[in-house]
């Protein structure tokens, strides 16, 4: 099994702190981490390898510094990691990102399974996985909570839905995006960390993946951000006090007066 795991670098916190004087976002001191959802993807890839053999390659598109995070994935059990990095990739939206990743994956040779986290915590779009599958012309399943079986070139997995789950079977190669429920990511081993320190992370540029420059970076991105702003939560909090029975009565009075859909 050749398994590819796609990861993204995100800020460690989604809490945007504002400098009140200048009305700017405070970015200093915010650590960059691997998108938390992608850690489940890495863990699942490594587990599949440990059970059935194969190789796990991690891929990411990002600035050169992302190589440090990719090195961490080696400590978590990945065999190799590749970084797609080029100034020409800057400004990519999900479509251009999916295209770029698809070229990086194609360059690796035959791949059986591609695993992504269900979404990234900075953008929350959940679009790159399915978009990547379309670019590669292979099937995909999102929100996978369990892989039931991988056998004879097919994967059978459970997709989480609003009402429960579905059991879906696809031929490989295929893309899955995984939810947190699928596993509990391991903590790296000391020896893994030592190996990761020494690991070489190849960096592939736009030329090396033979990218069409009209399809990468900002130019290849149909969507443009035209403005950003911080939403203001102006909440008038009202505290209800008293004994539990009194609190309950006041709350129910209040809600009923608002004509909310309270009855079944």
């Amino acid at each position: 099994m050749n398994i590819v795991v796609c990861v993204k670098q995100v800020p460690a916190t989604t809490e945007v702190k504002m400098n009140k004087e200048t009305n700017t976002i405070i970015r200093e001191g915010i650590e960059a981490i691997i998108n938390p959802f992608d850690t489940y993807a890495i863990e699942e890839g490594v587990r599949i390898k440990e059970q059935g053999g194969g190789k796990v390659t991690v891929i990411s598109m990002g600035i050169p510094k992302v190589a440090d995070l990719l090195r961490e994935t080696i400590a978590l059990g990945a065999d190799e990691a590749v970084l797609l990095s080029d100034k020409a990739f800057a400004g990519a939206d999900t479509l251009a990102t999916a295209y770029t990743l698809s070229l990086g994956i194609k360059k690796m040779g035959p791949v059986d399974l591609i695993i992504c986290g269900k979404q990234a915590t900075d953008g929350d779009t959940a679009q790159v996985g399915p978009s990547l599958a379309a670019k590669l012309g292979i099937p995909h399943t999102t929100y996978v909570r369990k892989i039931e079986e991988i056998r004879e070139g097919t994967i059978r997995c459970q997709r989480l839905t609003e009402d429960g789950y579905e059991v879906i079977e696809m031929p490989l190669p295929a893309v899955i995006t995984v939810v947190k429920e699928i596993n509990e990511p391991r903590i790296p081993s000391f020896k893994g960390l030592m190996k990761a320190k020494k690991a070489e992370i190849p960096v592939w540029t736009a030329d090396e993946i033979a990218a069409d420059e009209s399809l990468i970076g900002l130019k290849g991105s149909p969507t443009w951000v035209v403005s950003t702003f911080v939403p203001q939560h102006n909440v008038n909090s009202e505290m209800i006090e008293g004994k539990p029975e009194e609190q309950a009565k006041i709350l129910v009075d209040k809600l009923l007066s608002l004509q909310l859909p309270l009855s079944k």
Binding site: G123, T125, Q127, A133, H140, R159, T161, P222
Partner: peptide
């Protein structure tokens, strides 16, 4: 669940932009 899976696949094939949520 379905929409968030379908939309990016369709947008990718059509090579057009998609804004989530």
């Amino acid at each position: 669940t379905y929409g968030r899976s379908l939309a990016p696949r369709v947008a990718s094939v059509l090579n057009t932009g998609l804004t989530a949520d």
